[in-house]
């Protein structure tokens, strides 16, 4: 039963909740990952790689901007979404909020790879979205993501040829893989400034089922995760990296669930690092007592 998202004023509360939940998880992932990527600016291994990662950061931030903007139709603006929202109300997966240890370029390129493959799959599942703006914006985003994936793959292949490089990749993989799985976790509906409800974690799965049922996204999270595993596991193994999943196990789903970190981001539980990051990124806005965000570009069309 696809919902009708042609007009934003006639949305039922179920439709609105599904829309807000989907778009905050999409937008927050991009926004927070971009923020982390910018940590590499003026700190990357070479001038050329510095430029390339800065490019990807700007792309992701541009994507966050597009996703957040869809929520303008239901009265939520950048101010409310990025600068005045309670940090506990963000719905990105913890993969994107973890800080980079100084010099851990293996983390940067591996995280990028794990994320970008997941992103490509979810974008594919949004191309036929019942929401016209979502469907329209996917194309522009996907054509930028192709470069990100290829860039990450090239670096992984390059580093994995070297013993030291491969060892560092393995460390990063062991640490990041559980967090990457959070990308496929259902998100607790964000409050977005509304009065605090019971904020029921159990609702998350039901709301994600609504997202699919209403045609906002055409694949389930389980399907996306399984496709993602079928791509990243063989590729990483081809680089002689060990992935902590046994896909021939009797109950692979349960094994994967057991790997998930305690705080998953999607459930509103975050690592401490996120709160520090949020504090820093809203610092100027708060200290200058701003009540609105500056726009430089025109609002996205379509």
């Amino acid at each position: 039963m696809a919902g009708s998202f042609e007009a934003s004023d006639g949305l039922s509360s179920r439709e609105r909740r599904a829309l807000e939940t989907l778009l905050t998880r999409l937008g927050d992932d991009e926004f927070v990952l971009a923020e982390r990527y910018t940590e590499w600016q003026v700190r990357a291994p070479s001038l050329e790689s510095d430029l390339a990662l800065a490019n990807n950061a700007q792309d992701e931030l541009g994507h966050a901007r597009l996703w957040y903007d869809v929520l303008a139709d239901v009265g939520l603006d950048e101010r409310a979404l990025a600068y005045e929202r309670d940090p506990a109300d963000f719905r990105h997966g913890t993969l994107v909020e973890l800080p980079f240890e100084t010099g851990d370029w293996a983390d940067a390129v591996l995280r990028s790879y794990l994320y970008d493959v997941a992103e490509d799959l979810r974008l594919e599942a949004l191309t036929a979205s019942s929401h016209p703006k979502i469907a329209d914006r996917v194309g522009k985003i996907r054509s930028e993501e192709k470069y990100h994936r290829e860039h990450a793959r090239s670096w992984l292949e390059r580093l994995a040829e070297d013993d030291d490089g491969r060892g560092r990749l393995q460390d990063a993989l062991d640490r990041l893989f559980p967090h990457a799985l959070t990308l496929f976790e259902p998100a607790v509906p964000p409050r977005l400034g509304a009065k605090a409800s019971e904020n029921d974690v159990a609702k998350a799965a039901a709301v994600d089922a609504d997202v699919v049922d209403l045609g906002l996204r055409t694949a389930t999270l389980e399907e996306l995760r399984s496709e993602w595993l079928s791509i990243v596991v063989p590729f990483l193994e081809s680089l002689d990296l060990a992935v902590a999943v046994d896909r021939d196990a009797e109950n692979p789903e349960a094994d994967l669930d057991a790997l998930l970190p305690d705080a998953r981001g999607r459930d509103g539980a975050h690592t401490e690092a996120w709160f520090d990051l949020h504090d820093e990124l809203t610092r100027t806005y708060r200290e200058l007592g701003r009540t609105e965000t500056t726009t430089i570009m025109e609002a996205p069309d379509g």
Partner: peptide, 16 residues
Amino acid sequence: QAPSIDRKLAYSAKVQ
């Protein structure tokens, strides 16, 4: 620390 997404983009592009 830029106080908006657009400012952040511009600042990132400038540093780049």
